[in-house]
Design a protein around this nucleic acid. Sequence first.
DNA 1: GTGAAAGCGCTAACAG
DNA 2: CTGTTAGCGCTTTCAC
Lengths: 355, 355
Amino acid sequence: MKKSGVTLVDVAKLAGVSTMTASRALSGEGYASEEMRTKVHAAAKELGYVPNALARMMKGGKTNVIGVVVNDLSSAVINAFVTALSEEVRKIEMDMFIYNSLGDLGHGRGKRLSQMLHGLWDGLLFVLPRMTDDYLEQLEQSASPIVLVNYFSRETTLPVVRGDNVNGAHDAVSHLLDLGHRRIAFVRGMAYTGQSELRERGYRLAHEAAALEVDPALVVGGDFSEVAGLEAGRALMDLPEPPTAIFAGNDSMALGCINAIREKGLEVPKDVSVVGFDDIPASALVQPALTTLRHPVEAMAHAAVQELVRRIQGQPGRRHRIEFPSEFIVRASTAAAPAPAPRARPRARGRRAQA
Amino acid sequence: MKKSGVTLVDVAKLAGVSTMTASRALSGEGYASEEMRTKVHAAAKELGYVPNALARMMKGGKTNVIGVVVNDLSSAVINAFVTALSEEVRKIEMDMFIYNSLGDLGHGRGKRLSQMLHGLWDGLLFVLPRMTDDYLEQLEQSASPIVLVNYFSRETTLPVVRGDNVNGAHDAVSHLLDLGHRRIAFVRGMAYTGQSELRERGYRLAHEAAALEVDPALVVGGDFSEVAGLEAGRALMDLPEPPTAIFAGNDSMALGCINAIREKGLEVPKDVSVVGFDDIPASALVQPALTTLRHPVEAMAHAAVQELVRRIQGQPGRRHRIEFPSEFIVRASTAAAPAPAPRARPRARGRRAQA
DNA sequence: GTGAAAGCGCTAACAG
DNA sequence: CTGTTAGCGCTTTCAC
């Protein structure tokens, strides 16, 4: 089943010229007399000719297409990166396809991905990828240009463009410490992207720098989702000595925490300060607006595309790992720590802080 | 510049067989002795051979790929559709690429899209597309299979799978009327997708069915964004006679309205009820959870893919237009209308003050 | 079972 | 300026 039936040969035949003339007339490259050009264009139009991109690509060896692989399009963060990448790619006049692997690379269908579609694109960008070790190894041995964006799981020889999570988290927690908070909770995300771990490291380093110990009860599990944040928040606020501030592994969980805090009849930031990570769109719109950290998405997208293009063109990569500092954005969800509770009954106060 | 350098010919040479044998051994199709098979596989592995999808596709005429075109990936609705489509496509063992046109089709780069990549996919799905008339016409004349998902702007000969907006809106507004609300506002979205208009029609029809008039002051503009909802909400609540219920053109604006209502020191749903449309993920999580309408996304994705596949296979389309009723989801943002204000004597009351 | 030839639709590269 | 030839990497014939 042909794509559209009509090929360049048909056009040429109708126009009464050679295929080559037709090709030249249509592509605009090379010499072609005005007469031929109009004749060919007329024929093409009449037949409804549409060039077959596949054939053109095959001939040239280059497709002028960059592929972007994600495994969860519903994530606001991934979305932001994909959109920024689209714009970068458009700037350099290339095309971009997004491929949603629907889950970890290396399992099921994703297993074959990098191979199956090989040849369709000049280079591949992986955004916040989750993959098996096997898969990574396969990628490392792949001949086609690849750049990983925000990959943290393990060391790799592939070029990586990533945001700095440790220092960002450090900044956020230091800010809370500066505001007088001493019981600062951390809500973990899922382990496998590696981001949660790095953010937790920053959280711990900030405590160390202030010569403070982290109460293990204040570090709780989560999975980066809003519901997980809600549950983690409830658990934290139910603690005998609840935290006065929560640093959530990401914004979604931070929003969940805010809801949990409200359920207890407490106010953000008066009673409890909350900080997120990622600066998803909702964070700026919510009440109170969320203090958070954001990766310089546009700059990172730019760097990733540049690096990829460099490799596509066979030039040596600029750098193996490009790291971007995250920007700390102070909004309305953080404030000075509340006056310390009258030692005797911290719980009582927490319960009915306001009617 | 070759994609990976090593081709089937190289593999065959190393294995000491013909390219054909190599092809058969690797693809698993056709006869090939065990011996050849292992030999070829060994050679392929040694060279790191990866088949060129482009060449394979070209030969077969079919690519086994479905393309999905969107113009704004950050939209939660589009996202939901794209994800559902991914899963549908995976079920039928095809691949799917997403192309983000970054704005209306028919302007700038988008202009060339349908042509440029022609041949790369067997069929094209347009999700919530916005396009110029020219572009639509071009699409209608295109030889390749196309299905539009949630396209409402104008009549078209292309197959369309879409959610029913009019009846959904009618249901929502009827519900509010049943709850005793008599001043129900509507917040419009952007005009160009056509959805806002249909939802407004449902809103008006519900009023007509109840023999009530719509106060023109209660129908305000918006653009489907949360900020627009906030502004519209403020404007509405500042009215001399503010509404007791707001039906927003979509969920994002509904969430904005809720914030606006809160700013005035009022409560949802006690003082004002709010209904959205689309059931974006945030709607279920927000406090109070939003009453809204949702398209049966999975069913629609299924229908769209089936219809497209049918056309790819050259079978006649099942139906030209497939419409799916939206589901009305009652959550916590709607309640009975507050007792009428002592002074205000709404004129709407005259007819048949609620059964 | 395996191989040789032909060709998918297009465009570099060279002739004319 | 225009036409002819060749070939991208693979697979579908059709012989052997």
